[in-house]
Design a protein around this nucleic acid. Sequence first.
DNA 1: CTGAAAGCGCTTACAG
DNA 2: CTGAAAGCGCTTACAG
Lengths: 336, 336
Amino acid sequence: MPTLEDVARRAGVSTATVSKVLSNTPYFTEETRQKVMLAVRELGYVPNLAARALSSGRTHIIAVVFPYVFEAIFSDPLTMRILQGIEAECSQRGYNMLLSTPRLTVDGADDNYLQLVQSGYLDGVIALDSYPVASALQPVHDKKIPAVAIGYHHSDYYVRSTDQAGGCQLMQHVLDLGHRHIGIIGIPDDMHFSASRRMAGLREAASTVGLELDTLPHTYGDWSMPSGVTGAIHLLTKYPNLTALICLNDRMAMGAIQQAHAMGRHVPDNLTVVGYDDIPTAALFAPPLTTIDQRAPELGQLAARMLFGVLNGDHPESIELPTYLIPRQSSARVPD
Amino acid sequence: MPTLEDVARRAGVSTATVSKVLSNTPYFTEETRQKVMLAVRELGYVPNLAARALSSGRTHIIAVVFPYVFEAIFSDPLTMRILQGIEAECSQRGYNMLLSTPRLTVDGADDNYLQLVQSGYLDGVIALDSYPVASALQPVHDKKIPAVAIGYHHSDYYVRSTDQAGGCQLMQHVLDLGHRHIGIIGIPDDMHFSASRRMAGLREAASTVGLELDTLPHTYGDWSMPSGVTGAIHLLTKYPNLTALICLNDRMAMGAIQQAHAMGRHVPDNLTVVGYDDIPTAALFAPPLTTIDQRAPELGQLAARMLFGVLNGDHPESIELPTYLIPRQSSARVPD
DNA sequence: CTGAAAGCGCTTACAG
DNA sequence: CTGAAAGCGCTTACAG
């Protein structure tokens, strides 16, 4: 492979000149620039990024950190849509995206991840930071690498969805349809910040009609569809008079609906089931799911944009994205 | 950050010694090793990967290349499951995964991608290489970077699914149920190798009962669920006597089923619809989808394992993974 | 506007 | 078994 030096020799200038021309420093005669660019083209020169990284301290690599906690993140459509938003922004800016999926426990992240963070490979980090168990960004902050959190851990820069407002909208919708016998399929307490905020939203809305959330039948899942099945079995068996099920994400809602049908309940005539996230399948499920859109791709894109801002020395404002109720056919008025 | 030199000074040895101890070269007294490791720990030393990359020529980064052709790859569950398989293997081996999503056209891949490939950042590449329009691996091969293809373009090392056999199984299943009025929702010719192989499989099985595939009603989609809806509208309107629809992937099949229901056809009593891929939602759809399992995570994992083999100087055998028919409730005997 | 030279932090023959 | 020294391919003050 041709090096900077080869280019310099061919163009009849110094390596310093080539380097500066290539990095678009001003103050060069048009003639010099031409000579250099010609040599670059003739030689098919491409800079060696490792060398550039070592001498400049910038790698043009950012890490996207999606910790493993509950289960395979790759089967979570929501995560993937966030990733999509980040990717769009990175590829446009010519940054490379290192996908890191550390295992996160109370002891922190795994060693591979820690090594990566300290390796000097990363110009910046975007992390899903929603697990109270530990902050994926802690080691990143320690190393003073520019970072933006998607979530609730402490971080100078973050984007997040207004989860509480979303929970509120969801409960309000169910209440507006006249339901009072409502079951909840949630996430174990203190396992997930967003889930806790959504619960807080449910509680807030419930209290406006004098309903105490903690008195409602509830059970826990792990975001997966099978856990929605299990949750529905539990709730519908023990509390057959329930007329509505609120699930903290769409996949659990889809599992719950499937199970409800298997148990002879018809959604929505006989049972209202609502979800959260508006993943792509939600609209296409039978019946189409009433849910909350939290604009996942936008979340990712804004996080990336914010990181690039920080990388440029800006101090962007952190962002809270609003949520939107998407009423579809899985919810209906309570039967008389 | 402490450097190798700091460690050497503290341990009272040379940098060469530290470097060799850390890379597990043999021939060191236990005492030396101890001294070095102690200094490493005391200083919290972590190697600078850019420096290591520059001097050793190895970056410990592999690129996972998923080209954009049809649409957002991140909403394709199949792609995500392949990624999951690759990730599992990489994280176990301590390799970092750079996710690259070039735009692929007849003119080849975009410049960012080309630059990346030539940058010296990549120890190896795994690429989805199924688009006849261009090989994502061409520039990688040109640069002589170790690579494995998931797909059909020419490559020394590849993994792929036996798509033709899968197509065959699928058609056979439909024929076994007595269907002869069969519509096909496929992919435009020569747009996707796997799709073409699956079609070849359909043709092969059809011919065993004297059915000529090209005489069957067919239409094209783009893998997406909405394109399955459109395809079903077209086919069911123009050929109301169809008793079965074969779709080349699950998402189009789900779209088709939804549309069939909207048009008053009942699946499977009144219409059989089958898909391909066995994505996670397939089992949970209403009705659960009859489909072909092509073991996507395994595909990814084997590709990664193969790449690491090549990186170690092996010459692993390329692999074809078998497919499995998964009969569920979206297919049934043709009504009398 | 351009260049000489040091330096980024490692690894790797080569000696001993 | 250990070390001195060159070299990987860039960038960046510093001079001029």
